Amino acid sequence: MKTPKRLQALVDEGMMDEVLSQLMSGKEATVYVVRCGDQIRCAKMYKEAGQRSFKQAAAYQEGRTVKNSRQARAMQKGSKYGRKMQEEVWQNAEVDALYKLADAGVRVPKPHICFEGVLLMDLVSTEDGQVAPRLNDVNLSHAQALVYHEELIQQVVLMLCAGIVHGDLSEFNILLNEQGPVIIDLPQAVNAAGNMGAAAMLYRDVDNLKNYFSQFAPELALTQYGKEIWQLYVAGLLRPDTVLTGIVAEAKRPVDVHAVIEEIELARLEAEAELQRRLIQTN
């Protein structure tokens, strides 16, 4: 096929030899199957910010850092340079997460390089060399659903032990080959300790798994692995080998309404102070 202009830069730099086919086009990137010497890999070409249909980038960028204070200020002001920095942070988040998670034992594609908005990484394939199917495209038995669900919950635990929450985990970004599930699509991965929305994102990730697999194994619908995992993490008790039950005891003590109101008021005052600070910087 004809080589897209942005991928031609990788060919010119000798990072790959040719583009074989387009694999898929999603809300944030288009993925191509490419040849690098005698290796078949994939090239993930990120879409420009205006072309992405993923509209919640701000929530995922909280807690991400940049190289220096000038870049941080530019990102806050939304200048042209700042928007360029935001794109680099967005793209590099996936590369950083892939390396970190691979080191932690999470089953993710091996990254090779991110160059000019294109991430080059291993192609997840089956033993006969075919592109591995998405979980959503595979018919599962009751037993298979239980096994894959358990394996993926373990992957979620490994990710959180490495300080990362996927943030968009579902049956659509999990591939299956003979070794089991492989997790993909991580540009929205967040720092569990640095993002205030991390708990909610973890709950959603785990609930997505529960809702999908409970179609094949209905008993999974009553599990509460997300809450159990997060409670253990916050308490400093979560380990890669932690035995989970999927059961969370309900709190017996009454809600402290006064404390909740105080927290809301504190958050409001902090938001007002931050808005005032940004107005002063802008002026």
Rank of each mutant, 00 (worst) to 15 (best):
G167D: 01
L220K: 00
D122P: 03
F115C: 11
D17T: 15
T30S: 12
E62Y: 02
A93E: 15
S21L: 08
E48S: 08
I261Y: 13
T242Y: 10
Q130R: 12
I280M: 13
I229Q: 03
R73K: 08
A273Y: 04
V243H: 07
S21P: 02
K100A: 15
I280D: 14
K27L: 09
V138W: 00
T65F: 14
L232Q: 14
R41L: 15
R278G: 14
V89M: 14
A162I: 01
L209A: 08
Q86I: 05
L119E: 02
L238V: 10
L98T: 01
A200T: 04
V11E: 08
G163W: 07
K252S: 15
R204H: 04
Q76E: 11
V234D: 15
I261P: 01
E265L: 06
A200L: 05
A72H: 10
R6K: 14
M159L: 00
L7T: 00
Q51A: 15
V182K: 06
R70A: 13
L152T: 08
R64I: 07
G246C: 10
E151Q: 11
E219W: 04
R107P: 00
V182I: 12
A132Y: 10
A221F: 11
V106Y: 00
V165M: 04
N136D: 09
A102F: 00
E262L: 12
M15S: 03
K84I: 03
L186E: 09
V124T: 10
S79M: 07
G82I: 04
V131T: 14
G163Q: 07
E151F: 02
G167L: 00
I247W: 11
Q51L: 14
Q188I: 04
D38P: 04
E178Y: 04
Q188Y: 02
V255A: 12
V243Y: 03
D12S: 07
A72M: 11
N211C: 06
E270T: 08
Q188R: 12
I174N: 05
M196E: 14
Y212A: 05
K84G: 06
R204V: 01
Y46D: 08
Q224A: 10
L123P: 12
P218H: 05
I164G: 12
Y60E: 13
L20V: 13
E127M: 03
K44L: 05
T223M: 14
I184Y: 05
Y46C: 10
E28H: 02
V257Q: 11
V260L: 07
A74H: 05
Q188A: 12
R253M: 06
A43V: 11
Q130E: 15
D38H: 13
E87Q: 09
Y60Q: 07
M16Q: 10
Q8Y: 05
Q56S: 11
E263M: 07
T242M: 11
D17N: 15
F54P: 00
K5C: 09
